[in-house]
């Protein structure tokens, strides 16, 4: 590579990456068994995560014959079909649970994000009235939780049993997310905020016009953290929802896969008469398709979470 090439940005980046990838001259080259061992261990780590997912996806896409021939889970894909997904998504328990989970996730995430942003900003102005005791109120939640039974009694005394609000309100705030966002807001240069104040902006105006545009990355990360936790939530629903007609996907997944039981496809929950609309026993492909549906949103959101992990820094907002 010649020096002229350095002006081309792509080359420059590659060159820089190559330098970063190079072993420093003082370091001795690793032994062959050492390199081999490292490769094997890291390869196993990757395989341990990806292989089960691969098997589940392939099985969910396999025809009944292919599953029978394999004697269960399918490793080598043959005779692929989408029939399991078509069956699951054409109405019934899983479709309904999917709608519930998506609804709770969207509404819950928006709610949590809005109040977290507001509180994080409200606590981020140094020296403001009462900000220390209020911050303490937030931080103290790390040290102890209210406990299962008092929480249950509270939710039930509010009449929130069997309501979707019970899946959102009790766990709407993550103190961790709030603190992350607050630290980020505190890193925004005070000059920016003071100059907006001089221009006559109020606190709400500063938050929406100055702070938010600078904080897209952290808002995205915190939003995705909230979304993933709402999507994965299982315990709130187990505790507060008796009516299995309202169950989110995670509880349906537990019933079908972990407990290997079935839910009545009609209404009525536990009180449903036996034999009423009991769906035909789900095939293995259908079970695996439920697993895939449960994991897919996480897999889709993951690249965005990962992309923003590193973007915790604010770049040159104030010049000079």
């Amino acid at each position: 590579m010649t020096t002229q090439n350095l002006t081309i940005p792509g080359r420059l980046a590659r060159r820089r990456a190559a330098a970063e990838n190079k072993r420093p001259s003082w370091e001795e080259p690793p032994s062959v068994p050492g390199r081999l061992g490292k490769g094997v261990v890291l390869g196993l780590v990757v395989l341990a995560v990806t292989f089960p997912l691969y098997v589940v996806v392939v099985t969910s896409l396999s025809s009944t014959e292919a599953v029978t021939r394999a004697g269960g889970l399918v490793v080598v894909p043959r005779e692929l079909t989408l029939s399991a997904y078509v069956q699951l998504l054409s109405g019934g328990v899983v479709t309904k649970a999917l709608v519930v989970s998506m609804g709770v996730t969207v509404v819950g995430t928006l709610f949590s994000l809005v109040i977290t942003v507001l509180a994080a900003y409200g606590l981020s102005r140094p020296g403001s009235l009462l900000h220390r005791p209020l911050l303490f109120v937030v931080l103290l939640t790390f040290l102890f939780g209210p406990g299962i039974i008092p929480s249950y009694l509270l939710v039930s005394s509010f009449g929130l049993i069997d309501s979707y609000a019970s899946l959102i309100l009790p766990t709407a705030i993550s103190a961790f997310n709030l603190i992350v966002m607050r630290s980020f807001f505190m890193g925004i240069p005070g000059e920016l905020i003071d100059s907006a104040r001089v221009d006559g902006a109020g606190e709400f105006g500063i938050l929406t016009r100055i702070v938010m545009p600078l904080s897209k990355a952290v808002v995205a990360v915190v939003g995705l953290f909230y979304a993933v936790s709402y999507w994965n939530a299982f315990f709130n629903a187990l505790l507060y929802l008796n009516d299995n007609n309202k169950w989110p996907l995670q509880l349906v997944l537990r019933t079908y896969i972990v407990q290997a039981q079935q839910l009545p496809s009609g209404a009525g929950g536990i009180a449903a008469s036996p034999g009423m609309n009991l769906a035909p026993a789900p095939t293995l492909a259908i079970k695996m398709a439920i697993v895939v549906i449960a994991v897919l949103p996480v897999l889709l959101a993951y690249p965005f979470i990962q992309k923003h992990f590193t973007k915790g820094v604010i770049i040159g907002a104030v010049k000079g």
């Binding site: 509180a119 900003y121 409200g122 900000h131 109120v137 709407a172």
Partner: peptide, 12 residues
């Protein structure tokens, strides 16, 4: 600022 913090304080 206090108004902004209040929803979280109430929920907690």
């Amino acid at each position: 600022l206090l108004l902004m913090v209040s929803p979280v304080v109430v929920l907690l």
